[in-house]
């Protein structure tokens, strides 16, 4: 299934790193990038992504704030919040929003698991 994935991170380098892993795992997917909360929410309306990967640590509204707003728009969209600091508080807040927590730097197995789970969820929802 060719899906559209939203990648939100203020660091272009980090987005490049996600893109590289994604390119290997799901080469036919469409990738939409956003560098901050505003761009992410604009992309939500314009590109209607199927799932999202959000960096926690961003200036202005952080990844969890964005995740909460996305949740309001799309209650069942699969999301992952990524952070280099594995803090319980962040993990708990991500889980409370129904998002997966992933550690930075993002590894291929971790992203693969998240994507597989997301695809299953989307397929189940479509069926």
């Amino acid at each position: 299934m060719a899906l559209t994935i939203l990648v939100v991170d203020d660091s272009k380098l980090a987005r490049m790193a996600v893109a590289k892993v994604l390119g290997g795992l799901c080469p036919d997917w469409t990738r939409v990038e956003a560098a901050n909360a505003d761009e992410a929410l604009a992309a939500m309306h314009e590109k209607t992504p199927d799932l999202a990967v959000l960096d926690f640590n961003m200036p202005g509204r952080d990844g969890l704030d964005v995740a909460a707003q996305i949740r309001g728009l799309r209650p069942s969209m699969p999301m992952a919040v990524i952070s280099a600091n594995h803090q319980k508080e962040i993990v708990d807040r991500a889980h409370a929003l129904g998002a997966v927590f992933l550690s930075k730097p993002l590894t291929e197995p971790a992203l693969r698991d998240f994507l597989a789970g997301a695809v299953r969820q989307i397929e189940a929802g479509a069926a």
Binding site: S11, L13, M16, N57, M58, A84, N85, K104, P105
Partner: peptide, 17 residues
């Protein structure tokens, strides 16, 4: 917060490369 975030992102970038 800004300086913390900058060091944090520097760490992340160093990890990526």
């Amino acid at each position: 917060d800004g300086s913390f975030r900058a060091f944090h992102t520097l760490k992340g970038g160093a990890g990526i490369v």
